[in-house]
Design a protein around this nucleic acid. Structure first.
Lengths: 165, 165
DNA sequence: GCTTGACTTCAAGTGCGCTTGAAGTTGCAA
DNA sequence: TTGCAACTTCAAGCGCACTTGAAGTCAAGC
């Protein structure tokens, strides 16, 4: 577990994770991953970093920003596999998020299908209208649907990066 | 249908659509929407533009870029409601895309749940690994999952903007 | 020891989808 | 007629997640 083979240079980590070295450096700069250095100043990552990187990739799919991912990663141990409780805590947040996204997509599909049925898209009737003010378009991709979250309409969705009018 | 009230100034369209005027100007610049001008050079949009704008919003939720949205919009009439056939053709593409996204999210959830069960995330065993090379991270948000689309692995996903190593 | 490829830092650039600001013009209501 | 909000264009800026390039250093195999 602490053999010399556990100390991956960045190219190795890049190769194994499928990410560019530049991206990994960037992640390290942001504090998402960590490395030790050789006497010459080159990075050496532990194998556990592979886990963190996989986590980051998955987080991006769920729609987390690197900042949010960073917060999530902070709950996991840096150099060993998380235990069940730790993992549970994170994964539960995720599955909730995933469920929410799925629900939103299904809602949109429902609206679209409704449109097919009614031949509408002629204002008003159609579920695609009523954008609900400043809801959607939170930058980092498919986040909130237009017209969704009627309970938080008129307010920036909670927990989402503020910016962007 | 062609009353003077059908000619919306940009602020009106912005208010009704929930988008910023600047965004609408940007869309017009890209050719997604169109306007006529008053003698003084101010934009006047038809009500039908509301439909196009709603369409654009929905398209963003599905993860389409404005360029892709533009292509989709080209299939719909500019100043009237689409007929069933036109709408069908577009909506079908969308529902397929939505279904695909849902499937991907469910797959990720499955993997996460598996992780909870097995207490893993300890390399190898876990479905979260094997990133499948250059798959995910196509820029505009939750597009393709890591490890997904095993049939197109190693190739840029078809129909998706090339860039980004 | 030397070569060569992998590494280092730092600054600047990229692409998307806008927003912001400056400086000027229009249109409508009083 | 005037006043003022709403509009106009154009250029530049922003935030995210990186990538690219320049210029230099390290490490490992021959």
């Amino acid at each position: 577990m602490t053999s010399p083979h556990d100390r991956l240079p960045i190219g190795e980590l890049a190769g194994r994770s499928g990410l560019a070295a530049s991206a990994l450096r960037y992640y390290e700069e942001l504090g998402l991953i960590h490395s030790e250095r050789t006497s010459g100043g080159q990075r050496r990552f532990t194998r556990a970093t592979l886990r963190r990187v996989a986590f980051i990739r998955a987080a991006q799919v769920v729609g987390l920003s690197l900042e949010e991912t960073s917060a999530a990663l902070a709950k996991l141990p840096q150099d060993r596999a998380p235990n069940a409780a730790q993992w549970n805590s994170v994964a539960r947040t995720w599955t909730r998020r995933i469920d929410q996204q799925i629900a939103e997509l299904e809602e949109l599909r429902r609206k679209l299908t409704g449109c097919i049925g009614c031949g509408c898209l002629s204002l008003r009737k159609c579920g695609l209208y009523n954008p609900g003010d400043a809801a959607a378009g939170s930058g980092a991709g498919a986040r909130y649907l237009l017209g969704e979250r009627p309970d938080t309409v008129g307010v920036d969705a909670p927990g989402v990066t503020p910016g962007r009018a």
